[in-house]
């Protein structure tokens, strides 16, 4: 390969666009950090700026352990914990249900498998926002308000995951299924021993998407959780910034630090699974 050392303006242009783009992406995070490092009064007076303060530990203390409201249950730690449960419950539940549904559709001779699949698929047209009243009523009647089940189960069936797993399973060669049949692997063994390990890249990808989706849920937790101990981070932060009343200042430092904390788990999940994802892609061939 010949390496051209020639100076190219197009390269400068390309890089400028990339650099400007990444600055635009990073700037809000820097602003969050800046506001989290100063006192609330400073932020109130000056707005976001470029001067970092020394209030980070104080704000961190408040963000993680301070509770307001009546019960004192909605500390940052508690909200982080709730968000984690929602994120993981969401992602794992959706993957398990999606995989099993796709397995049934692809590998079993069901009478109306194709119809069933398309019915599942059309539910993509009915997101939660459309069916929020009936969904709420069902959860309420089942007595699942203010519970983790109530947060997770109504959203656990995923047309997206089912669709992706279906496409993936269809790409697995028929001969592998037949070899497994001759090797005496029944339906459950085949699923557990062959299909699940083969799907690990797909599972990783789905996990990233579904975890972030669950983590970022705002409307549903707002409706289902009224007890402060059940608040998730995303809805809890809003509660904190809203408390501008009387002579109270909004707690900028605390809420901005919480926002940063709320960003971290999805970022970590993406970083962690991405390396796994690439490894799976390069090492396995079907």
């Amino acid at each position: 390969m010949s390496v051209s050392k020639r100076f190219r303006w197009s390269a400068v242009l390309d890089h400028s666009i990339l650099i400007i783009g990444s600055l635009i992406m990073i700037l809000p995070v820097v602003m969050l950090l800046q506001m989290a490092s100063t006192t609330d009064i400073h932020t109130m007076k000056n707005g976001p700026g470029l001067i970092f303060g020394d209030q980070l530990p104080v704000n961190f203390e408040k963000a993680m352990f301070k509770a307001d409201g009546f019960t004192g249950a909605n500390t940052g730690v508690r909200m982080l914990y709730n968000s984690m449960i929602l994120g993981f419950g969401f992602a794992i539940g959706k993957i398990v249900i999606g995989m099993m549904a796709a397995y049934a559709i692809v590998y079993f001779r069901l009478r109306f498998a194709t119809l069933a699949f398309w019915v599942i698929f059309t539910t993509l047209l009915l997101p939660l926002e459309v069916r929020i009243l009936p969904s709420y009523e069902i959860v309420q009647r089942l007595g699942m308000l203010n519970t983790y089940q109530g947060l997770i189960i109504p959203l656990i069936a995923s047309a997206t995951a089912t669709f992706f797993f279906r496409q993936f399973f269809r790409s697995i060669p028929e001969e592998l299924v037949e070899a497994a049949r001759i090797d005496g692997a029944g339906p459950i063994k085949f699923f557990v021993d062959i299909l699940v390990p083969l799907s690990r890249t797909m599972i990783a990808a789905m996990f990233i998407i579904m975890f972030v989706y669950g983590w970022n849920q705002y409307l549903w937790p707002t409706m289902i959780t009224t007890e402060e101990g059940m608040f998730t981070l995303v809805r809890g932060i809003k509660q904190i910034t809203q408390t501008l009343e009387g002579t109270n200042l909004p707690e900028y430092g605390r809420s901005n630090l919480l926002a940063i904390i709320a960003i971290l788990p999805p970022v970590l999940i993406v970083i962690f699974f991405q390396s796994w994802f690439v490894k799976g892609l390069t090492e396995s061939d079907k």
Partner: peptide
């Protein structure tokens, strides 16, 4: 019986 397939049909993850 035992069968040998055209595309080997080995389990790629094992």
């Amino acid at each position: 019986i035992a069968m040998v397939f055209q595309n080997y049909a080995l389990y790629p993850h094992m």
